[in-house]
């Protein structure tokens, strides 16, 4: 399974659209794109997970790295559109307490 990473930047906001699976194989590509964005101070980085079916622990690590980097640089990191399985992962790992995770607008089954 692959991961596509698309970035739309405008006026201090960068939206990162992900589609596919974030796992040990695709995580390096995500890191390469996400980290430099969080290193820009006063930028809000929004990661849209609406089309992400699965995140493994390596993938989760990339979000932790991005969170630490945004803390250092003074940028903001937001996560949106996580499905039930992905949200469960954020909850179990307690990362929902430190990451800004926006509720998915879609109906959940």
């Amino acid at each position: 399974m692959n991961l596509s990473v698309n970035v739309q930047e405008e006026q201090g906001t960068a939206v990162v659209y992900l589609a596919g699976e974030v796992d040990v194989y695709t995580a390096p590509a995500l890191k390469e794109t996400l980290l430099p964005l969080t290193e820009q101070s006063s930028t809000t980085v929004i990661v849209n997970l609406s089309d992400v079916t699965y995140i493994d622990s390596t993938g989760l690590g990339i979000f932790i790295g991005a969170l630490k980097s945004s803390g250092k640089a003074g940028s903001k990191l937001k996560i949106t559109g996580a499905n039930v399985r992905v949200k469960r992962l954020f909850t179990i790992t307690g990362l929902n307490e430190v990451l800004d995770i926006e509720e998915d607008q879609r109906e959940e089954v």
Partner: peptide
């Protein structure tokens, strides 16, 4: 349980 993974802060 609640509790964050080791190593974040």
């Amino acid at each position: 349980t609640k509790g964050i993974v080791l190593g974040v802060s």
